[in-house]
């Protein structure tokens, strides 16, 4: 039977939490094995980064949402579970594709981890409709209270974790591939993020894209340098 928007949202939330029940707050045994197989074990760096980003996220979440700042910690914890789950799935897929088990360069890349975590957090906030292109930034209190305006809609998360949109874009497709149970709405949400990045955000003046384009074109020659506007 058709669901009301509130019921649909609550079903989505229950599904997300259910899917992550078996995922721990720490890397699984399999994931820890991938870490140990690295030339440099990234475990400590991963945990330290999560600690730092949890503080940043919770603080900014509280500033945006208001007095219910404890929700920020809950969202982050769910995001971390999803981040670990997706990372493990990605590595399994890469292991099969590339026939390698040492992913030291990838797993010691801070940008990769920040991008993956940001995507997981974006999925969590989209599930709770705190990041929504449809509602224009408003979400309804689950207990049926007054609508509360939030400013958590993408690309809010990029500013919180200090991540260029260009780098965030890289994980989206692999994220969707690694988690086939993502709902149609969430896939659509991520696709909208992709389109926003491709059409607009990746071309902002401070984007790393321009430096990469310069390098790609053999960089250096003054007459080959284009302004961001062009």
């Amino acid at each position: 039977p058709p669901q009301t928007p509130i019921r649909a949202a609550m079903t989505s939330i229950q599904q997300l939490r259910g899917d992550l029940t078996s995922s721990g707050d720490q890397p699984s045994t399999n994931l820890a094995t991938y870490f140990k197989n690295c030339t440099v074990d990234p475990m400590q760096a991963v945990l330290l980064r999560l600690e730092t980003l949890e503080q940043a996220f919770s603080q900014r979440f509280g500033q945006a949402v208001g007095p219910r700042c404890t929700l920020g910690c809950q969202r982050f914890k769910l995001g971390v579970r999803l981040y670990y789950k997706i990372m493990e799935a990605m590595l399994k897929s890469e292991e099969k594709r590339l026939s390698v088990q040492n992913f030291s360069k990838l797993l010691n890349d801070s940008t990769f981890h920040t991008s993956l975590l940001a995507c997981a957090l974006e999925v969590v906030m989209a599930t709770y409709e705190e990041s929504s292109f449809k509602t224009g930034g408003y979400n309804h209190d689950a207990a049926g209270g007054d609508p509360v305006k939030t400013d958590l809609c993408f690309p809010w998360i990029l500013d919180v974790v200090d991540l260029p949109a260009f780098d965030f874009y890289k994980v989206i497709e692999s994220f969707i591939k690694a988690e086939p149970t993502l709902s149609k709405d969430i896939v659509k949400h991520l696709e909208t993020c992709e389109n926003l990045i491709m059409e607009r955000i990746a071309w902002r003046t401070d984007s790393p894209l321009f430096e990469l384009l310069k390098q790609e074109h053999g960089g250096g020659a003054a007459d080959q340098v284009e302004t961001p506007a062009s």
Binding site: M90, S93, E94, R97, L98, F103, K105, L106, D109, T111, F112, K170, V171, E173, S174, I176, K177, P180, L182, S183, K184, V187, K188, E191
Partner: peptide
């Protein structure tokens, strides 16, 4: 896939996107 357009080829994955190939 819910009509999502997957653009990566079979020989492309997260390792290539982060220059880890």
């Amino acid at each position: 896939s819910h009509d999502y357009h997957f653009g990566l080829e079979d020989h492309e994955g997260i390792s290539e996107l982060f220059d880890c190939d």
